[in-house]
Design a protein around this nucleic acid. Sequence first.
DNA 1: CGTTATTTTGACCCATGTCAATACGGGTGG
DNA 2: CCACCCGTATTGACATGGGTCAAAATAACG
Lengths: 270, 270
Amino acid sequence: MLDPAFTFARPHCDPPDGFAPSLDAVSGTHPGGRPLQALFLPQVTETFAPPRAIFWEGDKASHVFHVLEGCLRLYRIMHDGRRAILGFSYAGDLLGVASRDIYTFTAEAVTPVRLKRLARHRFDELVDNSQDLRSQRLAAICNEMTAAQDQIMRLGRTGAHERVATFLLDVARRTGADAVAPVEIDVPFRRLDIADYLGVTVETVSREISKLNRDGLISLRGPHKIILRRLGRLCDVARMDVDEPREVRGTGAHLRLVNAHQAASAAFSM
Amino acid sequence: MLDPAFTFARPHCDPPDGFAPSLDAVSGTHPGGRPLQALFLPQVTETFAPPRAIFWEGDKASHVFHVLEGCLRLYRIMHDGRRAILGFSYAGDLLGVASRDIYTFTAEAVTPVRLKRLARHRFDELVDNSQDLRSQRLAAICNEMTAAQDQIMRLGRTGAHERVATFLLDVARRTGADAVAPVEIDVPFRRLDIADYLGVTVETVSREISKLNRDGLISLRGPHKIILRRLGRLCDVARMDVDEPREVRGTGAHLRLVNAHQAASAAFSM
DNA sequence: CGTTATTTTGACCCATGTCAATACGGGTGG
DNA sequence: CCACCCGTATTGACATGGGTCAAAATAACG
């Protein structure tokens, strides 16, 4: 699936990479034996048409899910209606693993979704009986943590350019797109979803995408088909200001890290 | 410690509460028997003077730590020097539990810190041998996830007012301050730390604090001693626009939740 | 006490939000 | 297959929260 060249050159401390593998969604990397996903094999398949919710924020976290097909948005809503999308979930992901008591977000189908479910107590029971599965679950949740940290960094410290570019690259990676120059990606989400995920408005998302289009970094084939033309350039945008390291304000204690990562953007064709 | 009235009324879906119990820091709530923290009892105590780092982002995650005293900032730095503080860690917290391979952030002493450490392999070994401890560790990490989600929501969807007010209330709660009106809290962090945590600039933090001061919601006794005078009002600021719920843009599917939480702010004396 | 780092404040500017109009696209029924 | 419709996306004009730059005030520390 993932071409090794398609690693987006990720120096460990450089966050605006790493698609948020969605906060409570676990991309399936199975170390040795049976992956967590295998636990769902005997279950029946269910189907959810968009925009139906699989579960709601606040519901008792009674099940864990394995997404077989389609994609989902995971979000929370504030008292006054503001919505924040915490992440997206794709085929292969697990859903609800990090929810203990109640679900801390709503999961809603964006495209038609097929999935399997397993009662939480059953899932826990199965996992607890295997050292290997326990370890997998832990690793999975830790990966989610890291993804969440990436997102915190993006939202707190980057501009709209960077966020949108990063988002497109992440979708490409999640999709398992090829690393060769003109990658056509499918973006099933609406602009509002993207906006609520990136912490900006629909208009800003639209404008940034239009700008990338004007500048030739991408082409649009309808709002949901985007062709990434200059991957290298997109990376540059995603990691703004790479060339001109700005002055660091602060203690200086952490200066040890600054400039320790000229490596970066190299990967990716261009 | 925590006055029950001091719960900041947290309806499950309303994020701008919940102090980020720091992303990889575990506040010690021990269900039944021996808490995770007890594992550190036999270890020797180490001391770190600020601004010394306990570990660096990217280091091999060789140990887990238990903070006995003092407080820490946990942060990541981008290639160009921008810093994002992911959270803070206080006495009682565990540190490094959610770091599997390498530490995904730097932990640095803000005040003189005393802590104990345990080799990661040893920690894992001990935890894996007890159903109870495993469960505690899992719960702890899930709490961190929730805290991270809160932060994502704040950074993506709130203004500077809300962020600063929330921050002050969270420090108060973390500190275990009393719920009665004039609460004096100790804020050991510098303004730049707060700024990097809240995703704004130092100047903005300063201005917002000044404004709260002018408006009588708080008083300053030096930049690191803040007296919260109108807790109720602070809560209102932290959850801006409570009274006039704005029109929700979007599918409408999630409308089920909107307005389902007029409860809120009641708690807190005022 | 003087020296330096931190914080506060002011003036100005820009990225992004807001409001509003238009254009597009995908689905439906004729 | 085409025409219409409605939700979504784009674009423009304008407003503003918060960033930036610079200076003054205050606190921290030897």
